[in-house]
Amino acid sequence: MEARLLPYFLILPVTLFLCLFFLYPFVLVAQEAFGTENGFSLDNFREVVSYWKFPISMKNTFLLAAAVVPIQLALSLLMATMVTKMQKGRDLVLYIWTIPLGISDLAAGIIWLAIFEQSGFLNSMMVGLGVTDQPVSLLSYQTPWMVFLAIMLAEIWRATAIMLVILVAGIGLIPKEYYEAADVFGASRWKQFTRITLPMLRPSLQTALILRVILAFEVFAVVAALGGTLFPVLMGEIYAYQFDLQNGGAAAALAIIVLIISIVFTLIIMRALRVPKGATI
């Protein structure tokens, strides 16, 4: 085969796969979102946006992302720096820290439910220690901040490792000589982190943040397990439209809105963390 065509031939299978299972369904979803019996219309979008739960679920989704992602970013940076500095047992620690990655988000939600529910571990502990006389209902409509906190904790526990793995790989790519130079020229450990590690980690930070932010807007199973209907989020609303209300058009429209939000944030992150021309390692 001609060498010029070989690359195209090699990416053909995955291209076909993506077209069949991603592009085609996407077109169908778009059709469903924008189409009614009378052709193109934005009726579905109007319906979705004017529904009373839309602003709440939008606010909740953003609030959760805003609370979780920065903490995860800081945590994963700290953990990645620690792992990189380790001489021995580095792999073991990495494996343990990445265990939550292997657990489905619904299972993660259920694990944390087992901790927070009325007959859960936390309550038994508090009763055992005499903090409370009897088990209290932590995840009720009377304690929304507790629901939010539980979801936050579960999300942090579940999805920090995805950023950690990317950042560990990124830090490993920074040549040691830069740190030696920084040492000689008087940069403290903290300055080395802010002036060398962070800027040189930009490409990895970009990837990690984009992935994590997109996942944050798609949060669903953890919220469903811990918050149920107490804490509506966008993905939960899509599910409700599709399966409870049997309104495929509205579900598709909301899905498109989430997609647009994801694209906007991806662009913002790419722009904010872009590496100037000529400034790559």
Partner: peptide, 26 residues
């Protein structure tokens, strides 16, 4: 002391100005 490294260790994310001034800024 100051040092010149074999692979230069010129910071890629800083301009030449900021590279030369790195130690002074510190």
């Amino acid at each position: 002391i100051s040092m010149v490294f074999q692979n230069y260790a010129v910071f890629p994310h800083l301009t030449v100005f900021e590279n030369i001034g790195f130690g002074l800024r510190m």
